[in-house]
Amino acid sequence: MQKTSKSTPTLANLLASSALLDNLLTGVLVVDSALKIHLANAAARQFFALTPRRLQQANLALVDKDLALDISLDLARIRQAITQEHSFSDSEVLLVSKGQRHWVQVSVTPLGTEQGLALIEVHLVDQQKKISQELQQRTQQQAARELVRALAHEIKNPLAGLRGAAQLLERALVQEELKEFTQLIIGQADRLSKLVDRLLGPQQVRTYQAENVHCVLERVSGLMQLAISPEIELSRDYDPSIPELIMDAEQLEQAFLNVVQNAAQALMGEQSLDCRVNKKKKITLKTRIAHHVLLQGQLHRLVAEIRIIDNGPGVPLELRDTLFYPLVSGRPQGTGLGLSLAQDIIQQHQGQIALQSSVGHTEFIIYLPLKHSLSPEN
Score class of each variant (00 low, 15 high):
13 N>V: 10
24 L>I: 14
30 V>M: 06
30 V>T: 06
34 A>N: 07
36 K>T: 03
38 H>C: 07
41 N>Y: 10
48 F>V: 05
57 Q>V: 15
58 A>K: 03
70 D>Y: 07
79 R>M: 05
82 I>D: 01
95 L>M: 06
101 R>V: 14
103 W>L: 14
117 L>N: 01
129 K>G: 04
131 I>N: 01
140 Q>M: 13
142 Q>G: 11
152 A>Y: 02
154 E>D: 03
154 E>A: 15
163 R>A: 12
187 G>M: 04
187 G>R: 07
191 R>E: 09
192 L>F: 02
200 L>R: 09
205 V>T: 07
211 E>R: 10
219 R>K: 06
220 V>H: 05
222 G>N: 13
225 Q>D: 03
234 L>Q: 13
236 R>P: 00
241 S>E: 12
242 I>K: 04
245 L>P: 01
254 Q>W: 02
260 V>L: 07
261 Q>G: 05
264 A>E: 04
265 Q>M: 15
267 L>Y: 04
274 D>Y: 09
276 R>V: 15
276 R>Y: 12
286 K>S: 11
292 H>T: 12
296 Q>T: 03
301 R>N: 15
304 A>D: 07
308 I>F: 13
309 I>E: 07
313 P>L: 11
325 Y>W: 02
326 P>R: 06
326 P>I: 15
330 G>R: 10
336 G>M: 05
340 S>Y: 13
340 S>D: 02
341 L>M: 09
368 L>Y: 04
371 K>V: 13
